[in-house]
């Protein structure tokens, strides 16, 4: 994990020294990027690095929804199910994605390519319906646009 610790040190230099504890969430994010999902031992590793109570990091890990604790697919599709998108057809598109991928919301395809998550507001209400695949936002969606977007993913 020495390479990881180098990246940790880099991030640490951004925060004032007295704010050591603030690094919990940034380090969890960083580790998630490296590993895809996080386990309790990752939380302990961060706690030891920062010299904060392991429970603090474990609590953070289990509380923030962006921190995956189960393996996810190569691509994570987060489709908004909140009010703005619902009014513009989100339910229909979630069903469409479930049929297309052959999985239910919250599941990962058998080949490990896609995880489908229905999420709350992505702040795309003016360009609804919207989804986020990995980091990228896709907006003003319809079925054919979804087909096109998924086709272009490796």
């Amino acid at each position: 994990m020495s390479c990881l610790e180098e990246k940790f040190d880099q991030l640490r230099s951004v925060y004032p020294a007295e704010m050591n504890s603030s690094l919990v969430l940034p380090l969890l994010h960083l580790m998630l990027k490296e590993k895809g999902h996080l386990t309790e031992s990752d939380a302990v590793f961060i706690a030891q690095y920062l010299d904060v109570p392991p429970m603090q990091v474990k609590e953070a890990l289990t509380w923030y929804t962006m921190l995956y604790r189960q393996p996810v697919g190569k691509h994570v599709i987060k489709i908004c199910r909140n009010i703005g998108c619902s009014l513009m057809g989100a339910e229909r598109l979630i069903e469409y994605l479930e049929r297309k991928l052959g999985i239910k919301e919250g599941e990962t395809t058998a080949d490990g390519r896609f995880t489908l998550l229905a999420v709350e507001c992505l702040a795309s209400c003016g360009t609804a319906p919207a989804m986020q695949i990995d980091d990228t936002y896709h907006e003003q969606l319809n079925e054919s646009k979804i087909d096109q977007i998924l086709k272009e993913l490796s």
Partner: peptide, 27 residues
């Protein structure tokens, strides 16, 4: 200016929750 990324929690938009989150705890 230090940029701190949230973890996907609506409640962290509440100001005291936001501070708890920056302090490295669940918000």
């Amino acid at each position: 200016i230090i940029v701190h990324q949230g973890g996907g929690a609506y409640v962290c938009g509440e100001e005291s929750s936001l501070l708890t989150s920056i302090e490295g705890f669940k918000g």
